[in-house]
Structure formats: structure tokens, C-alpha cells
Design a protein around this nucleic acid. Structure first.
Length: 241
DNA sequence: CGTCTTTGACCCGCGC
DNA sequence: GCGCGGGTCAAAGACG
């Protein structure tokens, strides 16, 4: 009898521990979900207004055009700020900004000596596994020579990288399988960029496409809702622990 | 040895 | 006018 009681007590202890672990996981997923919501909000606002309360150095960034911002999800353990976007960049500075503990790196295009293109790269304040790249200035050199060949999509450049990472993080297959226009366009672009459209132009068109944002949001929602119960505790969103 | 990265100093526009 | 803070410079170190 005592042995039975003892066994039950052990089982009860296990259940309590499991319950505690599940509660922690649930809290963790809630936090991830909240992070994701913030991230989506960031995309929707097209975060160009992140800097609206700060002065803009027109001298260094003379372009009047809205700077292009691009988001790339990386492996959570990857601390580098390197993005494969088809251009060669030379780092010329790094700063820790007030609103983000992650350092911001400054890059210049090194493919032409007088190229005015620059980019700032910083991890998202909401999700450190996401890199936010802000492109400024125009490339003033021929980019035909360095565009990766369509036969090597693995090493391809920005849009494909974004999509591959979204797929990995958010199970975006659902979004792509819906064959909605923005997603179909992305796949077409990744597979055969017939128009040789400039990367900045293409990403800019995506960022300005409300349908793209909506489709991504739907993919996120689907990823959260459609998981079986067991997996709901581990959505594998790729967000930091 | 050349190229690239790091990092502290400096510049300068903006808000108060 | 002054301080803050983002962006750039450039010397020194790292690396291949």
C-alpha cells in the first residue's frame, strides 16, 4: 500500500513538473507571439518612420527618396550582420543606437570606387533573429556582371533569401500555395528574373504592396492556427528563446 | 603586403 | 548656446 502511495506521489510530482514545463512553454509562445505581432506591425508601418523623430543627415544621405528597408530572418545563433544581396559591401562604421541594444553597422558599396550606395544593418529591436537593412543612395555602376546566375538559387540574393527564411520560420508554404499575386511574383522573380529588375526596385515594390503584407500576415496566422495541438506549444517561429 | 574590420574620436544637425 | 546622438573618419589590428 505504502509503495502504491509512493508511486502515485512520484507520478503526481512528474505531472506537476510536466504541468510547470507546459506553462513555461505556453508563456514562452505567448511572448513569441507578442514579438511576432510587433514585428508584423513594424512591417505594416513600413518602418521608414522609425527615424522620423530623429534628425536626418541629408549631407550623408542626400537622397530624398524614402529609404528602402528590408527584413531578413537569420538563425538565432547567428550574430553576424551580413546579408547576401548580390552587392559587395565594405563596412565603415558601427554604432550602438539609443533605441536598440544591437549595434548598427554602416556599409558602403565596394563594387565601384565612386558608388554612392550605402546601407545600414541592425537587428530588429523586437526580434534579434531579424536583421533590418536600410538602403540609401543609388548604385551608379553596371550590376549585370555580378548578379548570381539563375542556376544557383541557393546563393541567390535578397528576395529569395527573404522568402527562404520566411518559409523556414513561418511555414509560408501556405501563403505561396494560395498562388496569390505577390507570392507568385516572388517565385517568378526567384526562378527567372526575366526583366533583370534591380533588387532595390523589386523589394521596394514588395514593401509597397499591401497585398504582400496581408499575405504574409495570413501565413503567420495560418502557421499559428493550423498547427496540431501538440505543435502549438512549439510553433518553431524561429524567434529567440 | 594588401585588404578588410574594428573602434574611438570627431563632425554636425536638431531639439530644448 | 549647449548637449545629445546618429553618421563618418581614420588609425590600428586582424587576416589571408
Amino acid at each position: 500500500m505504502d509503495q502504491k502511495v509512493s508511486t502515485l506521489e512520484v507520478e503526481l510530482q512528474h505531472v506537476k513538473e510536466e504541468n510547470n514545463a507546459l506553462r513555461l512553454m505556453l508563456e514562452d509562445q505567448r511572448r513569441k507571439y507578442k514579438n511576432l505581432q510587433s514585428y508584423l506591425l513594424e512591417i505594416k508601418n513600413n518602418v521608414h518612420n522609425l527615424d522620423t523623430n530623429k534628425r536626418t543627415r541629408l549631407k550623408e544621405f542626400p537622397t530624398a527618396k524614402k529609404p528602402l528597408q528590408v527584413y531578413v530572418r537569420t538563425h538565432p545563433n547567428d550574430d553576424s550582420l551580413i546579408i547576401k544581396d548580390g552587392y559587395e559591401w565594405r563596412k565603415y562604421g558601427q554604432k550602438v543606437t539609443k533605441d536598440n541594444a544591437s549595434p548598427r553597422a554602416y556599409f558602403r558599396c565596394s563594387m565601384a570606387p565612386n558608388c554612392s550606395a550605402k546601407k545600414k544593418v541592425q537587428r530588429s529591436v523586437y526580434d534579434r533573429s531579424i536583421i533590418v537593412a536600410t538602403y540609401d543612395g543609388e548604385h551608379n555602376h553596371d550590376d549585370e556582371s555580378f548578379l548570381p546566375s539563375s542556376s544557383t538559387p541557393k546563393d541567390s540574393f535578397l528576395p529569395l533569401t527573404i522568402i527562404q527564411n520566411y518559409k523556414e520560420a513561418l511555414n509560408i508554404d501556405h501563403a505561396l500555395s494560395t498562388n496569390k499575386k505577390p507570392c507568385k511574383d516572388i517565385m517568378d522573380y526567384g526562378n527567372n528574373n526575366k526583366n533583370n529588375m534591380k533588387i532595390e526596385e523589386y523589394v521596394s515594390s514588395l514593401m509597397n504592396d499591401p497585398e504582400f503584407t496581408v499575405t504574409i500576415a495570413e501565413a503567420v496566422a495560418h502557421s499559428i492556427i493550423a498547427q496540431p495541438k501538440q505543435q502549438c506549444l512549439n510553433l518553431n517561429l524561429g524567434l529567440p528563446q
